[in-house]
Write a protein that binds this DNA or RNA. Structure first.
Length: 277
DNA sequence: AGCCACTTTCCTGGTT
DNA sequence: GAACCAGGAAAGTGGC
């Protein structure tokens, strides 16, 4: 699993995470054979024993697999251990995360009562949301879908199955079904690194946060991370940047002249603004 | 099977 | 000269 796009955490917790993870200190994540930062992945053990970081991973996994907007889950409300998490009531979840709290509660409930040895397959199978392509899905529609997922899930009190997915998709406008690749697109991958720099520090930074201007600090490291995500070990910044340039025409990115490694989000890029509703 | 969106790969030529 | 930028052309990939 590639660790991209995490939630917001307090500076203290981020600092403690950095201390917990020596391999992180070079500014570019390294992975052991299981692909985990800490040796044991969150889905391999009972939620009761999750560290704060694993709680965080679980939240991120829900966002990633369901292609939910990062604003759906307030990460700062979940700077807690697995034990604490398991003691939280539905009301606690709702208070912490609003409507998304029900989704979180249901998923956690499922994990708590299922054999952890089965979680690996569950983890792979519970991808029940494909985003629209190229950032053309309006955020409002995305949130409506998010609500649809939550309501279906809340009724069942278990992860959505294929029929749930079908049912939910049937309520979507036709445009949502046009092209629905799994996983994020390049611009979303870049956006998520920017939104959660604590996960991959020092790779890309905002130059002008409000204008959506950003700069690559370690261009080849970003390319390698992108390649890792796409299972392509020969990815280079040269090739990644070609894909970036194709975004100009689609207005997902705007050209920034004269500044090396600097790009700017365009009007068709979603989810990068601080208070995007 | 074929279309489509989205890259990926390769390239030439230009700029910093 | 290395690193980056611009964009054409074509191939590859995966969903539908």
């Amino acid at each position: 699993m590639i660790l991209e796009g995490t939630g917001r955490m307090s500076l203290n917790s981020v600092t403690s995470l950095l201390h917990e993870q020596p391999s992180w200190t070079d500014g570019y994540p390294t992975f052991n054979a299981s692909g985990s930062f800490f040796g044991t992945q969150w889905h391999e053990i009972h939620p009761q024993y999750w560290t704060k970081y694993q709680v965080w991973e679980w939240l991120q996994h829900l966002l990633d697999t369901n292609q939910l907007d990062a604003t759906c889950i307030p990460f700062q409300e979940f700077d807690v251990s697995g034990e604490h998490l398991c003691n939280m009531s539905l009301q606690d979840f709702t208070r912490a995360a609003g409507t998304a709290g029900q989704l979180l509660y249901s998923n956690l409930h499922h994990l708590k009562w299922n054999d952890t040895s089965l979680m690996g397959s569950w983890k792979e199978d519970n991808y029940f949301y494909d985003s629209g392509y190229g950032g053309t899905v309006e955020l409002v529609e995305s949130k409506a879908y998010c609500r649809a997922q939550i309501s279906v899930n809340a009724v069942n009190h278990q992860p959505l199955d294929a029929s749930d997915i079908k049912r939910t998709q049937d309520h979507l406008p036709k445009s949502h079904k046009k092209h629905t690749p799994r996983g994020t697109h390049l611009w979303e991958f870049i956006r998520d690194i920017l939104l959660h720099p604590e996960k991959n520090p020092g790779l890309i930074k905002w130059e002008d946060r409000s204008e959506g201007v950003f700069r690559f600090l370690k261009s080849e490291a970003v390319a390698q991370l992108w390649g890792k995500k796409k299972n392509n070990s020969s990815m280079t910044y040269e090739k990644l940047s070609r894909a970036m340039r194709y975004y100009y025409k689609r207005e997902i990115l705007e050209r920034v002249d004269g500044r090396r490694l600097v790009y700017k989000f365009g009007k068709n890029a979603r989810g990068w603004r601080e208070n995007e509703n």
